[in-house]
């Protein structure tokens, strides 16, 4: 195991919900804290985490999330009671679940998305946006938060990820 240590994590973020984005941020930050290089490549709905207009108000997905249960949105009820998708569709429910999750995150001293990206950037981690997804969503570099290191094609992303000990992770 020690013969081939992980030297770099290249993490692709394709989802745009709060619960879709946090794992990648935590993995990238965790890598930097272990002295492992980290880069994040945001594509498709993942771009919500970089766009200034959306990144401060990301929501937990409460619809079509069959793993969601009464304990998960921190309602304090047993995990065995499912959270009905129909309920998740009621206006305000996603916002409420998001509020509860953000509160729990704050208790664990996990920063909100913008501050988390700044933390990763300060730690030397790289933040990239996918060019194709940018074109598709009609986004420009200036629409994204200021810590974005570049807008890359898939080819450039692989080039950026090159090197022995790099692992590419799709989330």
């Amino acid at each position: 195991m020690k013969d081939h240590p992980v030297k770099k994590m290249s993490i692709i973020v394709s989802r745009g919900s709060l619960d879709g984005i946090y794992p990648a941020l935590i993995m990238a930050n965790g890598a930097r804290m272990e002295g492992i290089e980290a880069s994040l490549f945001f594509t498709f709905f993942g771009l919500n985490a970089l766009a200034n207009k959306t990144l401060d108000s990301l929501k937990v997905s409460t619809v079509g999330n069959s793993a969601l249960n009464m304990a998960m949105p921190m309602l304090g009820l047993p995990m065995t009671i499912p959270f009905p998708t129909v309920m998740g569709a009621i206006p305000g429910v996603s916002a409420f679940a998001t509020h509860l999750m953000n509160k729990e995150m704050e208790k664990l001293d996990i920063p909100p998305v913008r501050e988390f990206l700044e933390l990763i950037s300060d730690s030397g981690g790289k933040i990239y946006a996918c060019k194709l997804a940018m074109d598709m969503f009609k986004l420009k570099k200036e629409d994204l938060m200021d810590r974005v290191d570049g807008v890359l094609t898939v080819g450039q992303f692989y080039e950026e990820s090159a090197g022995e000990g790099t692992h590419i992770l799709f989330t």
């Binding site: 930050n29 804290m33 272990e34 002295g35 996990i110 920063p111 933390l119 300060d122 730690s123």
Partner: peptide, 25 residues
């Protein structure tokens, strides 16, 4: 790592520069 950066003692960047290869560890 967040509270360290906010402590006023050191910034996140400085912490990584001072202790390369694992700032808190």
């Amino acid at each position: 790592i967040r509270s360290m950066g906010k402590s006023g003692v050191v910034t996140t960047k400085e912490l990584y520069d001072l202790f390369p290869g694992g700032p808190l560890k």
